[in-house]
Design a protein around this nucleic acid. Structure first.
Length: 570
DNA sequence: GCCGTTTTCGGCCCGACTGTTTTCAGTCG
């Protein structure tokens, strides 16, 4: 999808027009259009093909034409012209916290600053001093911002941020009297990575909460401290915002600070249509609050079904809520077993027995042990004879009745570059759950990679496609592959898509889960655990599946073994 | 440049916080 590229291009036009300074509202129109494309629930190219670009909010004739130009040629001549005229590296400068379009204009107009390097030079030469509106503090903030950007300030994995947030919430609860406390923001929406943490508190003594907050042992620095908002940066560099809310507007605050921004824009527009006003203090008719204490009431009063935080991205959830069609999303308690785990037989850390015992502790009805196969030599992958031995071992365990759990015979079979599986069919046929995955030669071009994976899915014994894109969050992008083609072939061959719960993977991502479900596919939410405690990562896969609009019936491992195994028959 | 159960012209989401201001602009979410 080119949505993000196009959004970035439109945003850049917006900033450059701002610097140009001819028109006050044009930049705003481009900024709005950029946001609109960024949060569009489907491929903008598909919308363009249908000739419906102008139906997207904020897109009219002129911008629609520019989007078409980008889709045709890969560039927008208007943007190219602006770049020649005003050679500013917009993305680079905007990555500095506190620097926006106006500051970029100021720096360019006065000092011809165009990028991080020239900004740093000017800063070191003391040239920023004396510029209007830039005092000592602003300059210090820019200096700090440059080193932050240079230091590779990045986002934090959901799992890690949830951990940090729950420790901080515990600390606050222990320290002061608190009536209500919630984590909001992208963390509550369960985005796969988060930029910061938002914590909302209602307390009889807000000053004490703020005081406790800024004396948290893991604090690095205080960024801002007001009556209703306090921001800190932890030693880990992760920023945490604390909002102090009164009880009567707690629900409105929770709604507002959960976002997303685009979801909130939609809700405010909806409120306006109904002659109401929505802000972080409540939903108002004139000066009278008609909702605010409880988040549910906001949605109710707007004529909407309650929308789970995971869906609040303006990806069609508002329309669905209006039509009473918000699905009952899958929950952790729906899960009855795990279909992807490893042992010390290959690259896992625990024995088969230890893994089984841990799964029993989690209350699973079944655990599929799916160690790697021989092509993955770095993981000591199993060949046919080791797999056969493993099959006997598992039969023995299941027959012994030692554990109140069914152990399923499986393997995570490597997809070779030519699309063949690296294990003989005669052995694959004896396994109950065969997950096929790409682990090597990950840089093939799109066509070849798509062909490779599709060929594998056509195998009579491929049940599940493991971590379909192979991406590692904040580390490496996934393989280049046409998932729409893959989904089509998977549908024909009755292959299930995995939602891998490993915090660094979360693969498929939410958008592709939704696409897979729309293609009529089922998903399996698996942990890919290599250690006993990693079996507990299931919740992250659940979050991701919920963000992909999945219900319990979309997920095969919400079923009993008896109902599950027939689903895998080809 | 976009958009309209007030409008095809004349407006453009909303509020907190900070810094540099003597009343407000810029950024952020």
């Amino acid at each position: 999808m080119k949505n993000q590229e196009i959004a970035r291009a439109l945003h850049e036009i917006s900033v450059l027009l701002e610097v140009e300074g001819k028109d006050k509202f044009k930049p705003r129109a481009y900024a709005r259009a950029a946001r609109s494309i960024e949060s569009l629930g489907e491929d903008v190219e598909a919308v363009a093909r249908r000739g419906e670009l102008e139906s997207i909010p904020g897109i009219g004739k002129a911008i629609a034409k520019k989007i078409e130009e980008y889709l045709d040629t890969g560039t927008i001549s208007h943007l190219e012209k602006l770049r020649k005229q005003i050679p500013i590296k917009v993305t680079e400068l905007e990555s500095i916290p506190g620097v926006g379009p106006k500051t970029i204009k100021l720096l360019y107009d006065n000092l011809k600053i165009t990028d991080l390097e020239s900004l740093e030079e000017a800063l070191n030469a003391g040239k920023l001093e004396g510029l209007p509106r830039l005092g000592a503090k602003s300059i210090a903030q820019i200096a700090e911002g440059i080193s932050l950007v240079r230091g590779g300030m990045s986002r934090t994995l959901l799992a890690e941020a949830m951990d940090v947030a729950s420790r901080l919430v515990e600390y606050l609860k222990q320290s002061v009297s608190i009536t209500q406390i919630d984590v909001a923001g992208s963390l509550r929406r369960r985005r796969e990575t988060v930029g910061d943490i938002d914590i909302l508190v209602n307390s009889p003594s807000p000053e004490q909460v703020a005081a406790a907050f800024v004396s948290y042992p893991e604090i690095g620095e205080v960024i801002v401290k007001g009556d209703t908002k306090v921001s800190i940066r932890l030693k880990s560099r992760l920023q945490v915002d604390l909002r102090l809310l009164p009880a009567e507007s707690y629900g409105a605050g929770l709604q507002y600070f959960t976002g997303s921004k685009d979801h909130n824009v939609r809700l405010r527009a909806l409120a306006q249509q109904k002659k109401l006003k929505l802000n972080e203090y409540g939903l108002f008719r004139g000066d009278t609050a008609i909702a605010g204490r409880h988040e549910e009431d906001i949605y109710d009063q707007l004529g909407l079904q309650f929308i789970p935080p995971e869906l609040r991205e303006d990806h069609g959830e508002v329309e669905a809520a209006q039509a009473d069609q918000i699905p009952a999303l899958v929950e952790l308690s729906d899960i009855r077993g795990d279909l992807h785990s490893h042992t010390d037989q290959t690259d896992g850390s625990n024995t088969l027995e230890e893994m089984i015992e841990a799964a029993v502790q989690l209350g699973h009805e079944y655990l599929c042990v799916s160690d790697h196969t021989k092509n993955l030599t770095v993981a000591n992958g199993m060949d046919e004879s080791r797999i056969l031995k493993r099959i006997d071992e598992i039969d023995e365990i299941n027959n012994s009745g030692r554990w109140p759990i069914r152990v399923l015979k499986g393997a995570e079979v490597d997809i070779l570059p030519n699309g063949e599986l690296d294990i003989d069919d005669s052995v694959l046929s004896q396994l109950e759950v065969v997950t096929v995955s790409v682990h090597t030669m990950m840089r093939m071009d799109r066509a070849a990679m798509t062909e490779r994976v599709c060929t594998a899915l056509e195998s009579k014994y491929a049940h599940i496609l493991g971590h379909p894109t192979g991406r590692l969050l904040l580390k490496r992008p996934g393989i280049d592959i046409d998932l729409e083609d893959v989904f089509e072939v998977a549908k024909k061959n009755n292959v299930v898509m995995e939602v891998n719960s490993y915090p660094q993977r979360l693969d498929l991502d939410a958008g592709n889960i939704r696409l897979a479900l729309r293609s009529g596919l089922k998903i399996a939410i698996n942990t890919d655990a290599h250690k006993t405690f990693e079996l507990d990562n299931m919740r992250y896969g659940i979050f991701q599946a919920r963000r992909g609009w999945a219900t319990a019936s979309d997920v095969i491992n919400t079923r009993s073994v008896k109902d599950l195994l027939p689903l895998l028959k080809k």
